[in-house]
């Protein structure tokens, strides 16, 4: 609507261009292997883009302060908190969410580990935990218990007391080691 107003008021092409660039950034990104292009509000958070625009509701929102980690995804291969990033900041990036961690019908060793070791209860923190743990194992394939605990410092679980999450990650590390 504003765009039309600008046009009818005879704004020069430069102004219109300014408006399009500044006000509704057009973003193109790859999510779980699929390329998407959308015009988004500047203030749209990446987590809301994933949940509301793309319908990928496995990524959750559990706090307001980048503290809980339930919104953890991979941006260009690294774990980040998608609640603290604008969708526009991710323009041109490749994103993996929990839905895309393993091919459809298969489980990633971490997903398997969480199930085998009872690493989840209500499941709300689980996608973020798994995405964070995947980053940890990519940097450190054979972490100690303490390294696992420190690696999870950005993720809160209220159900498990972390005991079985640690074991789930140990399971995945072991399984991946065998696979290699």
């Amino acid at each position: 609507m504003l765009c039309n107003t600008l046009k009818t008021n005879g704004f020069c092409a430069k102004a219109l261009n300014f408006y399009l660039t500044y006000i509704m950034p057009k973003i193109t990104l790859t999510v779980n292997g699929k390329t998407h292009t959308h015009e988004v509000e500047g203030r749209l958070l990446l987590v809301h883009y994933l949940r509301d625009t793309l319908g990928l509701t496995g990524t959750h929102v559990g706090c307001d302060t980048s503290s809980c980690g339930t919104c953890t995804i991979h941006l260009d291969g690294k774990a980040i908190k998608s609640c603290s990033l604008l969708a526009a900041q991710a323009d041109g990036s490749s994103i993996t969410t929990i839905e895309g961690l393993a091919p459809e019908g298969e489980l990633h060793p971490l997903q398997e580990g969480f199930k085998e070791e009872h690493g989840l209860q209500c499941g709300f923190c689980t996608p973020g935990m798994i995405m964070c743990a995947a980053d940890l194992l990519s940097r450190n394939p054979d972490p100690t218990e303490q390294e696992i605990r420190e690696g999870l410092e950005g993720n809160i679980c209220r159900c498990t007391g972390y005991h079985n999450i640690v074991r789930a990650i140990q399971y995945a590390a072991q399984k991946s080691a065998v696979a290699v």
Partner: peptide, 18 residues
């Protein structure tokens, strides 16, 4: 092993806000 886990570990849980 828990039956319900499959949907949660794959991001397919369906919470109210979803």
């Amino acid at each position: 092993k828990r039956i319900e886990d499959k949907r949660f570990i794959t991001g397919k849980g369906r919470y109210t806000d979803d």
